[in-house]
Amino acid sequence: MSNLQNFNDIYASLAESAYNGLRPNPFPELIKEKESRPIDFSKDSIIKDKKGEVISLTKGGTNLPNDGKVYLQPDPTLKITDKTISTTIPKANGGYETQQHKTGEIAKGLLTDSKAGYNSYFVTDKPSVKDSKETYFVTRGSDAISLNTLNDWVINNASFTLFDSYIPQAKLAEKAMEAV
């Protein structure tokens, strides 16, 4: 999926925001927040590199529902834990010791399961869910294949494409939609 030129299609903008990388309004960067987060698709989005040079400009949308303002709702069940590996090393005076090393994070909740490669986002037209009239359920598909996304490609994509079977992520999405 390439970056869009503008935010005139709210559904395409929401879908694009579900991905990481050089994309405007990336939801994955906001999943740890405890409060609803306003996002305004009527405003231009400028992404700059480390030198401050503009590398991406997406024009704000016009004629959008709720004037382009939506609110990314937090997942109250989200738990972030450290992803660690253990190494056993010899001690200087004999024997061995095991050391833990953090290699990343594991996110798990109703809308996220990083081990399963599942990421969904609940977006509303008002800061409070109960005051909202419009709600959006956005699910991120697979990112480009890499060692970090291998579980997603093998377990989910291969199951669907090779065997035409129900993918594990679909069960997670169904459960999340019923709860929100």
Rank of each mutant, 00 (worst) to 15 (best):
M1A: 13
S2F: 05
S2T: 06
N3H: 05
Q5F: 14
F7C: 11
N8S: 14
N8I: 07
D9P: 04
I10L: 12
I10V: 09
Y11G: 00
A12T: 06
S13K: 04
L14A: 04
A15C: 03
A15S: 09
A15K: 03
E16I: 09
N20G: 03
G21E: 02
R23V: 15
P24C: 13
P26G: 01
P26R: 04
P28K: 01
L30N: 12
K32I: 13
K34Y: 09
K34C: 11
K34I: 14
E35I: 15
S36Y: 12
S36D: 12
P38V: 06
P38Q: 12
I39K: 00
D40I: 06
D44S: 10
D44A: 06
S45N: 08
D49C: 02
K51C: 00
E53I: 01
E53Q: 05
E53T: 03
I55W: 04
I55H: 03
S56P: 00
S56E: 02
L57D: 02
T58C: 06
T58K: 11
T58M: 09
K59M: 10
K59P: 02
G60D: 05
G61L: 01
N63V: 03
L64F: 03
L64K: 05
P65G: 00
N66Y: 02
N66F: 02
D67L: 07
G68K: 02
G68Q: 08
G68M: 06
V70H: 03
V70S: 00
P76H: 08
P76Y: 12
P76I: 12
L78S: 07
K79G: 01
T81E: 11
D82C: 00
K83A: 08
T88C: 02
P90Y: 13
A92L: 08
A92H: 01
G95L: 07
Y96V: 07
E97F: 10
E97K: 14
E97D: 10
T98Q: 05
T98H: 01
Q99D: 02
Q100S: 10
H101C: 04
H101M: 12
K102Q: 08
T103V: 15
G104T: 11
E105M: 04
E105F: 07
E105H: 02
I106V: 15
G109T: 12
L110P: 04
L111A: 08
S114P: 03
K115E: 14
S120E: 05
F122N: 06
D125F: 04
D125Y: 04
V129T: 13
V129F: 10
D131K: 07
D131G: 00
S132T: 07
S132Y: 04
K133R: 06
E134V: 00
E134D: 09
T135S: 10
T135L: 07
F137A: 04
T139C: 06
R140G: 04
G141V: 03
A144E: 08
I145S: 13
L147E: 15
T149D: 10
L150E: 12
D152C: 12
W153Y: 10
V154D: 14
N156T: 06
N157P: 01
F160A: 11
D164N: 14
S165C: 07
Y166T: 12
Y166N: 14
I167A: 13
Q169W: 08
Q169F: 09
A170E: 10
K171L: 13
A173I: 09
K175N: 15
V180Q: 06
